[in-house]
Design a protein around this nucleic acid. Structure first.
Lengths: 146, 146
DNA sequence: ATTTAACGTTTACAATTGTAAACTAACATT
DNA sequence: AATGTTAGTTTACAATTGTAAACGTTAAAT
């Protein structure tokens, strides 16, 4: 329970490479990010270093160099991102917000099917009314009389 | 087209007050955030100042003080947040990600209904397969043969 | 053995963010 | 008029982030 560390935008780029390759050398990472972001190798190195410090990357010696693996799960990390988004809005708005995401995304038939199933499963635990979780003055729910 | 400015966590707290009250005095803001975040008034003042600078808050003179109003729409701002989330994952994962959000949220019957409608409307424009938008090395889609 | 290439570590440095005190100008009070 | 209260503006300052060069060490090549 040490780990509330945020993954920054730049760091995320590195994590994605490691998540994808499962095990990556700095060279792998440097190469991908040179092509995607035009980073100098030094930049990738710095980020790798920081991620190791933060405990988000693990190292395994492999001869003279390291093999990097992710210490955190990608899915978990995405969930934390989602959480950070929902932390910014009222609980009551979550449904509409998800609806808006659906509207704006490109989805496949399979995706839609998955969402329908998910929604159906969700029905059993749907509540009558979602409770607002905001302090007065930060959402419309609590009346603030003009 | 000047405005790519991020709203930081702390700034967001201020924006929420203004979005909620539509028009707020610094006093309003200070009060809400003192109660919610235990901020010293100075802290709220700094954030207000920065938001005005960034053009995210507008001021209207009211006697000796200002009335602050939001220069950006809350819904728009939330959409930008959503975008920042989706920018971190492969397009092909968007569906699953939304499904996961649904699973983990508290939703009302109305929300579910809304989502079902949204989903139905979406069916017409569903694609056979969502195209991956990642560089090789940052998602599983493009084969990278171990 | 000497030189070079590769890789991790240190140092750098400006911009942004979180937090807040100090200062100043304008009003309201006594 | 003198003083206290407000509200906005300046200054402060450490931590984090984005970007990268420089350095040191080890392994590979000549």
């Amino acid at each position: 329970m040490e780990d509330k560390s945020q993954i920054t935008d730049a760091e995320w780029e590195v994590m994605r490479v490691v998540w994808t390759l499962h095990q990556a050398t700095s060279k792998d990472i440097i190469e991908v990010l040179r092509s995607k972001k035009n980073w100098k190798q030094a930049t990738a190195k710095t980020l790798i270093g920081r991620l190791v410090q933060k405990g988000l990357l693990e190292t395994e010696q492999d001869g003279k160099r390291y093999l990097y693996t992710a210490a955190v799960d990608e899915t978990e990390s995405v969930k934390m991102l989602e959480q950070r988004l929902f932390d910014r809005i009222c609980n009551k708005e979550v449904g509409k917000t998800i609806a808006s995401m659906i509207s704006e995304s490109t989805l496949s038939h399979n995706d839609i099917e998955l969402l329908e199933e998910t929604l159906n499963r969700k029905k059993s635990e749907a509540v009558e009314e979602v409770k607002c979780n905001c302090v007065p003055g930060q959402c419309q729910c609590k009346g603030h009389h003009h």
